[in-house]
Nucleic acid binder design. Sequence first.
RNA 1: GGCGCGGUAGCCAAGUGGUAAGGCCGGGGUCUGCAAAACCCCUAUGCGUCGGUUCGAUUCCGACCCGCGCCUCCA
Length: 466
Amino acid sequence: MAIRLFDSLTRQIRELKPSQPDGVFRMYCCGPTVYGPAHIGNFRTFLVQDVLRRLLELEFGADKVKHVRNLTDVDDRTIAQAKREQRPLAEITKHWTEVFHADCRALNLLPPQVEPTATGHIAEQVEMISELLAKGLAYVAPDGSVYYRIAAFPSYGALSRIKERELKVTVATADDDHKDDASDFALWKAYKPDEDGEVKWPGPRGAAAGRPGWHIECSAMSRKHLGDTIDLHSGGEDLLFPHHENEIAQSEGCTGHLFSHHWYHCKFLLVDGAKMSKSLGNLYTLDDLTAKGFSPMAIRYALLSGHPRKQLNFTLESLGAAEKAIGTLDRLLERLMYKFGHFPRASPSNRFAGVLTALRDDLNIPAALGTLFSAIASFDPESESTDADFAAFEQILKVFGFNLRIALRADRVIPENVVALAEKRWAAKKVKDFKAADALRAELTAAGWSMLDGKDGYKLEPLKKA
RNA sequence: GGCGCGGUAGCCAAGUGGUAAGGCCGGGGUCUGCAAAACCCCUAUGCGUCGGUUCGAUUCCGACCCGCGCCUCCA
């Protein structure tokens, strides 16, 4: 069954398929700028892209999807951060790249096959800018910067339909530039000693030394790693304009070929009904939430619980709901493992087929989750499940990227004193000294742990922090 | 001002021209020394407001109210 997805350019739901003869689906995702910790809004986009990739791999084969996601490691913000901290740019970006990778692992995001950096592709960017200059699509400004001449690219604005708008030209954008037209954008920014510190490279012929503009990196890296034409390009809704509009102008202006067959944009994550911002105090990082006792898998669930093309309102309450929902899936997995005593060996049954149907229908993740829970409630896993159902369940978990066995382990570092208390209580219970047992339960609660009695043993679970 | 999106139960959130998925919370029950877990049952005559089309609208159309996003470097 085909995977269909909304395309931002044509504004239609269209089938996704590889366009090249090799059958490889080529997807490029705009990645993070590594100057600070990524927040959960960033991760919403990366998680949606991750589920899409998993679905595509299921459809076309695990080796038939090539996923490229860049790291922006040189731009205004990274340079400003390096200057603030009085440290070399590379040191700053290396640190935040490592933090980003750790967060990605915690959220069980599949690593892209290629994760190119802007600073690692200066030559490719300079080359592309040179081609644009040669074709008359760009010009060198008096200060040695290079700008894209929008007027020379007739189809500019097709993605964002900007021709139907009135471009708001503010004083702020006009003052420091040497552009021929206020709408032209920078391909190469001439070096400014007082702002850029040590950051500069030789520029294209005729231009000054400096650094690439923001948009050109994606065009150059996408071309290098995926070719002139790719199958899907995606990012957050804010990137639609100007970033992706400019990428199209650069890539198609340069190569003369269609840049991407499909465009997909994730809507923003809101927190408590408002866009995240430091001033509102509603900006969360992964660390902020795990520090409150939430598991990364619950965060993954919560960030995926809304339709990707609709703004999602994230609250701590909804995260709590996600934690419980993940717990239910977790326990079901445990029950099935217990019943079968081994990982599934059969081919997946169609027990959860509706889940995949929902995902293939414009990546309707919330509908898919609804279908999943309905399917779970419709049968008794202990008596009615088959090995094939188990396989189907595992397949669904894999597509959603819910790595429950890791989720189980994540919080299972149990302090020795807690284990000792639990052992004492278990012994007291065995001899029916319930008074002592209750007192010990209270001590465990005070220590932040919950003791779950079973028939032949017990489990310890950490209590959630407020 | 231009472009676009949304308002569904206490919270989050799907969906349909024919009478409201799912998760959480809440209530009841089975089980349990306690507490959980597990399992079963219940929980929106209602889908921003007002009109219109229709046999019938939450779903289509119009107006209005409210919220949100983009409009040159924020996923």
